[in-house]
Write a protein that binds this DNA or RNA. Structure first.
Length: 848
RNA sequence: GGCCCUCUGGCGAAACGGUAGACGCGCUCGACUCAAAAUCGAGUGGGGUGAUCCCCCGUCCCGGUUCGAGUCCGGGGAGGGCCACCA
């Protein structure tokens, strides 16, 4: 049967998709003896239709997975759906439908589109987080972590999103006070909530980053910053004269030691001899107590005003520094000096100790505050080199660098670094402080006052308080009949059949927890669930985990740098502690892919009318063209713009590939034995073929340069167009090239590749699948040319080129180069001082 | 303010410290066609002489290292990302 003259992806693609499926080609575990590879892309959140960003991640991961399979590995390449969460619930509220129904529909649509794109997923392992068979294990983990003390209940200030009507995590607050999901204002609200003690893992999470050598550095840097370890010291300033005559504090204070101590945290204890005042946050518990009667009115008014001002306005960049004197004085333990105690808007109650020592000469913020309120400025650090600083009164701005201490008692003359160590140790020795580590990372509050999440398996008993639901009663399932309004109290609170239950301890009537878990819980361990997705006795099989974990390559967007990618590292450590996994990092190599922008270069958005959906593009050009576009446009980590012209170009390329196969059909049966007799242009073609195998392979490994791999294929195809084979050896060389093209194309344009490969091989290949064939090897003898072009430079400037045998020695090349008229013109009348010879590449005459 | 990234033709991009611009898009010309599309082929960084030969300039800017720098080092500029009165 003659091959179709036209490239028609619409007829080819469904055919191969069903062949792959029937053969179970992409099931993991089919090659038990082979080395495993776990390739994973971040699973989609099916709140709407599939978009180009999805098409890009899965295309990148798929190219890798397909290549690794052809390299003989046992490949696990699973997929699932991150189905629970606020956006799905919000969308459901908007169109008045149940989130379960809507999500199910979206998943069907997603699955359909992914299948049309021909991704080599192991669909048997699909996981949907909204399924009780999945989220029961969220609940199971919750119970285990409760036992371990990693989960705890707290009452505290939470970030309350006014739009989503729920608490959200610190990581989900953007632009200071906006919800990452819906953009609504976020306010502080005091609410009881459940939290993960992720801070207990802070050091470990930080140390682990050093071992993640195959992660993009910018991601590990972001995590490092987010974890935010700062090493400093805590120092107690004792209130001068003991208690101030404060108004009766409410509630009554616990008995205090003789002296009231104001604990401050600083990373610059080396500057402490320059401390001229101390500042507390307005919310600091000691404020009421230490304020002097004559300052009482001012301080109260200030605190009251701060309470009413929202966080951004108060502490945002533009906010003016404001403060008020309390009338109290505290003693600097290093100097014995009494310094005034102030309160100010810019001091945060939630960071450090909520109190700072102010060193206006060496901290810009303190400097501005001191100038505004006429507080003294005292220089105690001098630059190690360069001009000395003037006295404090004449200082134009704070000197914040490290330097050499002066006027600092015993520490005078020490460097800042040495002084920090000495002074912190001294504080400890003398009992008024100690070296201290502070973290930016906070515990992960995960209670959400919403419906579409995992119910938290806790029962509140009037006698026993919060009681965990026994393991054998899991899952606590979401009641289908909840009324979801998106406002007011948690929807689950309004479902009596859910709320009302009995205490597992005493059997008395009790109420269930009505909050649900943050969606990030679902995505924190899904990669492990893929290992045994139908297991109903445990979250996953540890033996399978031993075989498959860690994930070898994880592909996803860099926007998850400090949320998902930190949470799942934390979770993996918990699983490690529970003995479920054998390593403490979940992912060996992370690939972060760039955004697909609209054709106008702007982010795709309805607002700009520049949204291009993958579905219609696949229908029009075929999956292979869309995939090729994603990979050819730029390396994975770069942002790309959708371009209709470029897409046309890739379709044109695949058609061009098709046509050359069609035009060279007579070569399909060429005898392989004739290959060795290929000469001239056809020997060159063979070299090009083998070089192409090498280049494409390199692009799929190492730095993942799919774009140059595809470029190499294009060059080979261009070379084929330039040749007309007439004899068997020539036809054999062409056949070799055609087979290479088909095979090398398999990770990128798998459908066309299968079709072409089968055309070349004919009936003998009927039962085989290219997707499972071995990746081609190249002949090292054929990737090197026997004659090379050598650039000739004079003083580093290109002045000609010569052809020389690859092994040519310097003398030979030099003679050839000097024989070139143009080169001679530049050498005439000059003295050659030196000749630099780089074998196979260039020769450079240095003349004067 | 801190940390990080990027900067190369008209555009997307290539380039172990070694011929800058591979490959693709776009554009120009030619072949095919009554014509167009499609396809195939040729050309395509700027400038200058000038006719296929050569010269000069050219990878954000300034300096340095080197026989040789898009690449390495120092300084600056522009754009972007993340964090942020974090003590």
């Amino acid at each position: 049967m003659a091959m179709n003259e036209r490239y028609e992806p619409q007829t080819i693609e469904p055919r191969w998709q069903s062949r792959w499926e029937e053969a179970g080609a992409f099931h993991a575990g089919r090659r038990p003896g082979a080395e495993k590879r776990y390739v994973l892309e971040m699973f989609p959140y099916p709140s709407g239709a599939m978009h180009m960003g999805h098409a890009r991640v899965y295309t990148i991961g798929d190219a890798l997975a397909r290549h690794l399979r052809m390299r003989g590995h046992d490949v696990l390449h699973p997929i699932g759906f991150d189905a629970l969460g606020l956006p799905a619930e919000n969308a459901a509220i908007k169109d008045g439908r149940h989130p379960a129904e809507r999500t199910a529909e979206n998943i069907v649509a997603f699955r359909g589109e992914m299948k049309k794109l021909g991704y080599a997923f192991d669909w048997d392992r699909e996981v949907v987080t909204a399924d009780p068979s999945y989220y029961r294990w969220n609940q199971w983990f919750f119970l285990k972590m409760l036992e371990q003390g990693i989960v705890y209940r707290r009452e505290g200030k939470a970030n309350w999103c006014t739009g989503c009507a729920t608490v959200i995590a610190n990581e989900q607050v953007i632009d200071d006070d906006r919800c990452e999901r819906c953009g609504s204002p976020v306010v502080e609200k005091v609410i009881p909530e459940w939290a993960f003690r992720i801070t207990a893992f802070a050091q470990d999470l930080l140390d682990g980053l050093d071992r993640l050598t195959e992660w993009p550095e910018r991601i590990t840097t972001m995590q490092r910053n987010w974890i935010g370890k700062s090493i400093g010291a805590e120092v107690d300033f004792v209130l001068a004269g003991g208690r101030g005559e404060a108004a009766p504090p409410e509630p009554p204070l616990a008995p205090l030691a003789d002296a009231v101590r104001i604990k401050v945290f600083t990373t610059r204890v080396d500057t402490i001899f320059g401390c001229t005042y101390v500042v507390l946050a307005p919310e600091h518990p000691l404020v009421g107590e230490l304020t002097r009667p004559e300052q009482q009115a001012d301080v109260r008014a200030f605190v009251e005003r701060m309470r009413k001002t929202d966080a951004v306005e108060r502490t945002g960049e533009g906010a003016a520094k404001e403060g008020v004197f309390t009338g109290a004085y505290a003693v600097n333990p290093y100097t014995g000096e009494e310094v005034p105690v102030w309160i100010a808007n810019f001091v945060l109650a939630g960071y450090g100790t909520g109190a700072v020592m102010s060193v206006p000469a060496h901290d810009q913020r303190d400097f501005e505050f001191a100038r505004k309120y006429g507080l003294p400025v005292r220089v105690v650090i001098q630059p190690a080199k360069g001009e000395r600083l003037p006295a404090g009164d004449a200082l134009a701005q704070a000197y914040v660098e490290d330097g050499v201490l002066e006027a600092s008692g015993d520490a005078t003359g020490l460097s800042s670094a040495a002084a920090r160590e000495k002074l912190a140790a001294e504080a400890q020795a003398r009992g008024f402080g100690q070296p201290t580590v502070r973290w930016h990372l906070r515990d992960w509050g995960f209670s959400r006052q919403r419906y579409w999440g995992t119910p938290i398996p806790i029962i509140y008993c009037p006698d026993h308080g919060p009681v965990p639901v026994p393991e054998d009663q899991l899952p606590v399932t979401l009641p289908a009949e909840a009324l979801i309004t998106g406002t007011g109290e948690p929807p689950l609170a309004k479902v009596p059949s859910f709320v009302n239950t009995t205490c597992p301890r005493c059997g008395k009537p009790a109420r269930r927890e009505v909050d649900t878990m943050d969606t990030f819980v679902d995505s924190s361990w899904y990669y492990a669930r893929y290992l045994s997705p139908r297991d109903d006795t445990r979250p996953f099989d540890p033996a399978a985990a031993k075989r498959w974990l860690p994930v070898d390559v994880y592909v996803g967007g860099p926007e998850h740098a400090v949320m998902h990618l930190l949470y799942f590292r934390f979770w993996h450590r918990v699983m490690h502690r529970l003995g479920l996994v054998h390593e403490d990092e979940p992912v060996r190599r992370l690939v972060t892919q760039g955004i697909v922008n609209g054709p106008d270069g702007r982010k795709m958005s309805k607002r700009w009318g520049n949204v291009v959906a993958p579905g219609p593009m696949v229908a029009r050009f075929g999956a292979d063209t869309v995939r090729m576009f994603m990979l050819f446009a730029a390396p994975p980590e770069k942002d790309i713009d959708w371009s209709d012209e470029q897409v046309d170009g890739l379709f044109r390329f695949l058609s061009r590939v098709w046509r050359i196969f069609h035009a060279r059909q007579e070569c399909f049966r060429a005898p392989e034995a004739a290959l060795a007799e290929a000469r001239g242009d056809f020997l060159e073609l063979r070299r090009k073929t083998h070089r192409t195998v090498k280049r494409v392979t390199e692009g799929l490994e190492g730095d993942l340069k799919f774009n140059t791999s595809i470029a190499a294929l294009m060059e080979l195809v261009n070379a084929l167009y330039a040749l007309e084979p007439r004899a068997d050896p020539e036809r054999a060389a062409v056949r070799e090239a055609l087979l290479a093209v088909a095979t090398l194309l398999a990770p990128f344009a798998p459908h066309a590749a299968e079709e072409l490969w089968h055309e070349v091989l004919g009936p003998p290949a009927r039962e085989r699948l290219l997707a499972e064939e071995p990746w081609p090897a190249f002949d090292p003898a054929l990737v090197v040319a026997d004659v090379v072009t050598i650039a000739v430079q004079v003083n580093g400037k290109l002045r000609g080129e010569v052809q020389a045998p690859i092994a040519a020695a310097e003398a030979e090349v030099r003679a050839l180069a000097e024989g070139e008229q143009r080169v001679r013109a530049h050498l005439d009348g000059k003295t050659v001082r030196k000749v630099v010879f780089v074998p196979k590449r260039l020769i450079n005459f240095v003349v004067a």
